[in-house]
Amino acid sequence: MTDKKFLKIHCFQHADFEDLGCIKDWCIQNGHRINYTRFFEDENLPAPEDYDWLIIMGGPMSIFDDENYSWLKAEKAAIKEAIRQNKTVLGICLGSQLIADVLGARVYKNPEKEIGWFNISLTEEGKKEPVFSGMNEKMKVFHWHGDTFELPEGAKNLAFSEACNNQAFLYNRNVLGLQFHFEVTEESLREMLRNGKEELTAGKFIQSESEILTQKESIKSNNTMMFHILNSLASDEGV
């Protein structure tokens, strides 16, 4: 029997109120080590040899905000290098948009903001992929985004919603972009609401704070799927 491999996971965090959520619980339960670059505090980037996985979180900025966030250019270069070196890379919301951008896909404002609990549907490719095995063809997930992306060349489109054609993609089997927030916890949900209340304006795909909070029972199923995805990515590495 071989010893279990413990991963070195590095997290790019863009805002103090958008953290790893339940991903941190998964790391702790499995003995994996987490290090951070918290761009709102420190812009130091790790060398690729210092981590096995790179996880890129969401944030209120867009990928085009280089003038306001000077670290974005260096972050994009680091993501591109991680992909080049065949690291496992997971991007959530803004993170998925950054991955799409460095892979040469267009990132742009979606016609509608999508904030709240809305269904995603699996594509035919999504139904076949182990990362989403066991998920219903439709599932209510938590969204908070105004931008979206075109599919990077060579990537598989795994999911879509009524508001957004590209909700999840897989590139080279070890680079996964999720536009939505499977990682959300009750605490992180309240933090996002506290820090983003001004975005809860009238819109076809924007729910009110009370609508969002009354559906928080969906957090459990979202976290179950997040754990499944992480286990699937880890099993591909023999972890």
Rank of each mutant, 00 (worst) to 15 (best):
T148H: 05
K204W: 02
E43P: 12
W53E: 00
G104S: 07
I212G: 15
E124S: 05
E137Q: 05
E49V: 12
T88H: 02
Q179H: 14
N136Q: 07
T88M: 08
A168T: 05
A234R: 09
D65T: 13
F142Y: 10
K87S: 14
E187F: 10
L193G: 12
V89R: 03
N157S: 14
E162T: 03
R106P: 13
I63V: 13
D3A: 07
A159W: 05
S121I: 03
F149C: 11
G58E: 11
L233A: 08
N231F: 00
K4C: 00
I56F: 01
N30S: 11
F227R: 09
G238A: 04
V131N: 08
K138Q: 04
F180A: 07
F17D: 11
Q207P: 07
T185D: 00
S70T: 15
T224P: 08
S210W: 04
I115A: 03
V184S: 06
E81W: 01
G126P: 04
A105H: 10
A15G: 11
P152E: 05
F182D: 06
D236N: 08
Y51C: 12
R190Q: 13
G196Y: 09
R173A: 11
N223W: 01
L158S: 04
S133P: 06
Q207C: 07
K204S: 09
V184N: 06
K128V: 02
E183F: 05
S221L: 07
A234W: 03
K140N: 09
E217C: 05
I9T: 15
L193P: 15
I99Y: 10
L189R: 03
Q29N: 13
S210G: 00
R106H: 14
E81P: 08
A82K: 03
Y171K: 07
H145Y: 10
F142L: 07
I229Q: 01
L94G: 10
N172C: 00
V184D: 02
A163M: 03
K138L: 02
E198K: 12
F132C: 06
E209Y: 04
K24C: 11
D52E: 10
A77W: 01
L178N: 04
E18W: 06
D236V: 00
E237V: 12
D42G: 05
K128L: 01
K156H: 08
H181A: 02
A234V: 13
N35I: 14
Q215V: 04
L54M: 12
K127T: 03
N174D: 13
E67F: 09
G203F: 06
T224C: 00
D236R: 13
L54H: 04
L122A: 01
Q13I: 08
P60M: 03
L7W: 08
K5F: 09
Q215T: 09
E49G: 13
T37A: 12
E153C: 07
